[in-house]
Amino acid sequence: MSVQIPAASPGEMAVPSAAAADSIALHGVDIAYEREGQEPLLVVENCSLSVGREEFVAIVGPSGCGKSTVLRAISGLLRPTRGKVLIHGNEVVGHPAGVGFMFQRDTLLPWCSVEENIAIGLELSGNPQKDPQATIRDLVQLLGLNGFEKSYPSALSGGMRQRVSLGRLLAYHPDVMLMDEPFGALDSLTKAVLGRELLRIWEAERRSIVFVTHDIEEAVYLADRVVVFSPRPGRIVAQHRIDIPRPREARAIRSDPRFTHICEQIWDDLKLPTH
């Protein structure tokens, strides 16, 4: 059931979709890092990608392939060396509004309690809230953080901290969520639980998500589309549409033949010598 999009001419490679409905579009993006006394290091090469308004896209690729770099370019944390990045059709200047980021390591403020950390997202969202306390309470409830509202991050486990990070991200209320291996540092059980909760939240209120991971199964389970990157310099070598219907069941999906088939294909894509 997966649609393999040919990677023959990567320059024009974009999944057919109505341009107006895209929230993110990358056109022929190169990203190189300046190095002192050396040639610039090309990490992303000729990357063209578009993400729909309610689409969940996962990027997989070997470590160091520039997949996180792509996220940084979308969020305006760095400028592409060549090519264009558009958000809602506008070229990214500075840090675009409505774009939320989540890192692998929790970037919570250690001197703020769980509530206060979530409140920061709310505060920076710029949407005046009638009752901010109620919004925070709802998020605490949604993420299963009840009883930990007053705790400091130092007292929480890694999984709990990422729940708080997700809470802060949701409080910021972005239309585009960029997630850089958000569950990558967690044990597989916690990772599975958090993945399921992310899906539950996203299915209730759809928005664009670009989710970077090196876990193929996680990508296929979560995403509408999986984009496969080559080793550095990262190029898109394949894209797979995941047509497994939602809501997806974390346990059942793993024995679904479509699931295993796509995973195998992505394994093959990754193994391909790309130079």
Binding site: R72, L77, F101, F103, T107, L109, W111, L178
Partner: peptide, 24 residues
């Protein structure tokens, strides 16, 4: 990363100073 995260949420310089730099 914490500072980067603050810039993605478009926090102002004074916000970052008050809420991140000074407590840190």
């Amino acid at each position: 990363d914490m500072l980067d995260l603050m810039s993605t949420m478009r926090a102002s310089r004074s916000f970052v100073t008050r809420r991140v730099v000074l407590p840190a």
